[in-house]
Amino acid sequence: MSSLKIERDTFQTAVTQGAQKAADKHHGSKVAATAAAISEAASGNLPGTKGDHPISAVVGTALTGGRQNAGTKGYLAAYIKQLEDNPLRTKMLTAGTLAGAQELIASWLAKDRNKHGNYFTSRVPKMATYGALVSAPLGHCLIWALQKTFKDRTSLRSKILQILVSNLIIAPIQNSVYLVAMAIIAGARTFHQVRATVRVGFWKVMRVSWITSPLCLAFAQKFLPEHTWLPFFNLVSFVIGTYINTITKKKRLAALRKKHFGDGGRPTGGSTMGRPEDYPPLGPNPPY
């Protein structure tokens, strides 16, 4: 019995070591293949690419079916062509879709339903409208002005100056408009309420922008064509915004439960749980 146990343990150890070696070899081959693909794209040998943006070319090739489909019209290639041919329309559709999806996903993650029990609340189409009709045109104009100002200026000093202008001029404008729109969507109806929302949230939003914006802009300067900058920024904002929106919804729902149900979990005054829009105003400011 003892010798059988030793043989079995030896066999299991050998299998484990063999599997680990195979995994390491597979990982190493994937890294080598990725490095080879980037090198190929940088030299302009990848079909459909010029070698100007090797990393984005490799990513785009992977998203559109692999090297065998390189140079053919894939989803990413079609989207980039639309960005070149119809930049504003494509950006509006992109921003509207992402803004609506952000609100829907955040509602689902936070379990924030309307009074009918649905995650597709009235805020979803409002956010989509904001993204398409406000955020995208504003971003399109501001990014265009930024790119035009620094056109053909590729020195390190110019890139740093571009990042500073983006963070000190463009970001405050975009964040202020965003906070005004969010206040109105959430129920603000007076100038005082909108101003209070902007005053409370401005520096919090700016701190997030000052952390993420330089990194994103530096990445875009290095690896992305200029016409893809705004969709890239929208995608980053989508991820960050979904996280912040989810946390905000959870905090608001917890506060509403405490206010309308009390610490014991029972409704006070016949209230039923729902979104802030389902309750009467609690004070001079709307409950958003």
Score class of each variant (00 low, 15 high):
F232C: 00
D263E: 12
G262Q: 06
P172A: 09
L253A: 12
T94A: 05
F238R: 03
L161E: 09
S166Y: 12
E103L: 07
T248D: 09
G71W: 04
G264Q: 11
T248G: 10
T248C: 01
N285I: 06
L161G: 05
K250S: 04
L224P: 02
R266N: 00
T49V: 01
L138I: 15
T61N: 01
S158E: 15
G74N: 02
Q17S: 13
G71P: 09
K91R: 08
R199H: 11
I244K: 05
A220R: 01
N234I: 11
K21G: 11
S158A: 15
N86A: 10
G265F: 02
K249A: 12
P276V: 01
D24I: 12
V31C: 11
K81I: 08
P47Q: 05
R257Q: 11
P276E: 01
V134Q: 03
N175D: 14
S237Y: 02
C216N: 06
W229G: 04
L179T: 03
P267E: 02
R157V: 14
G201I: 05
L142W: 00
L133S: 08
F11Y: 12
A181W: 03
K111H: 13
G139T: 08
D52M: 03
G201M: 13
G131P: 04
Y288V: 13
D278H: 11
R257N: 08
A70P: 02
P137T: 11
T212W: 07
G269L: 11
V165G: 07
L83D: 09
T190D: 03
A33I: 05
T49Q: 04
V198S: 00
A183T: 10
P287I: 07
V165L: 11
A128L: 03
S237W: 06
G60W: 05
G274Y: 01
L256T: 04
L142V: 12
S135I: 00
T228M: 10
T64S: 15
K115E: 08
N69I: 08
V134H: 06
G28D: 01
G71F: 07
G18A: 08
N234T: 02
A101H: 06
L104K: 01
P287Q: 02
M92Q: 01
L230Q: 07
A36E: 05
V205S: 13
A101T: 13
L104V: 08
R153S: 03
V31T: 12
K21T: 11
V134Y: 05
G139C: 10
L253F: 14
P172S: 08
T94G: 10
V58T: 01
H116L: 09
R8Y: 06
T246P: 04
E7H: 12
R257G: 02
H227F: 02
I170C: 04
G44N: 04
P267T: 01
F233A: 10
Q147R: 07
V15A: 11
P225I: 06
L179R: 00
T228G: 01
E103D: 14
V200S: 14
M92A: 07
Q20A: 15
K151H: 05
F233C: 06
D263M: 03
M1H: 13
P137R: 07
G131F: 01
E7S: 14
M92P: 10
P47T: 04
A23S: 15
V200E: 14
R67I: 04
T13M: 12
G270D: 05
S122P: 03
E226Y: 06
F261A: 01
I184R: 00
P172K: 09
F11E: 13
R8V: 03
G269M: 09
